[in-house]
Design a protein around this nucleic acid. Sequence first.
DNA 1: GCTTGACCTTCCCATCATGGGATACTTGAT
DNA 2: ATCAAGTATCCCATGATGGGAAGGTCAAGC
Lengths: 131, 131
Amino acid sequence: MNIGQAATASGVSAKMIRYYESIGLVSESRRSDSGYRIYSDKDLHALRFIKRARNLGFSLEQIRDLLSLWQNNARASADVKAIALAHVDELNQRIRELSEMRDTLASLADSCHGDQRPDCPILQTLGKPCH
Amino acid sequence: MNIGQAATASGVSAKMIRYYESIGLVSESRRSDSGYRIYSDKDLHALRFIKRARNLGFSLEQIRDLLSLWQNNARASADVKAIALAHVDELNQRIRELSEMRDTLASLADSCHGDQRPDCPILQTLGKPCH
DNA sequence: GCTTGACCTTCCCATCATGGGATACTTGAT
DNA sequence: ATCAAGTATCCCATGATGGGAAGGTCAAGC
């Protein structure tokens, strides 16, 4: 399987597959005589693993750890769970921050007439001299 | 006021002030004879404005628009409100995505024993052949 | 006056994950 | 033989920020 097919089948772009290889996230693939990368089902499996983990918001470094646990049959599930829960915490933190921004901004927008007049509490608040 | 004092007073690092100037987000400041940047209260006001808007998650390009409205006394508050509401939508979208990730991951983690055994539904799900 | 340390200047590089594009080669089908 | 599509390697860009080097400036203390 060439890189394009692996990309389609895994949902990871060819560009990214090459990049993952360059940073050692996936091992260097076999090459054809002409230098084309060749992917096995096992390689594909790893790419799909990465794609899933990205969809869950894991960073490539977190995925590096997950991959090594995934490939290590002697792993303890506690190690995996710890990474997952740490990431849940990160997600919660970011959700909290974004929610706070949204609430503040929504209430500012709510108090703005939204008409042709220049008077605007949003700009007034942004421009206030101190926090 | 030198850049360091402006940085402290506005909460924007000196690095960032220079960067904002380089991309034309703030106008080039006056310079002393020796080339030091000099900031007025008005400049400081604009930096604080930017800082606030960043805290609300606006991108620098959005802030560019907000600043020009802020400085334009003939603005319509509707224009400001539109930008704010569009940003609220973006925030909601990101919150939704992150919440979805968190829920998926939390439920996976929940189903994982988290003990010394290798058996782990988290890795199993990440590694499953198809979406 | 001279030293010292804190501050300022510009310039380059790094981050993180991804995409765009240039140039050249390979493959497979007509 | 030709042509399109695929692939290879490079370099560059993003957005917002920080780090650091090399050199100039300022103010305080001796």
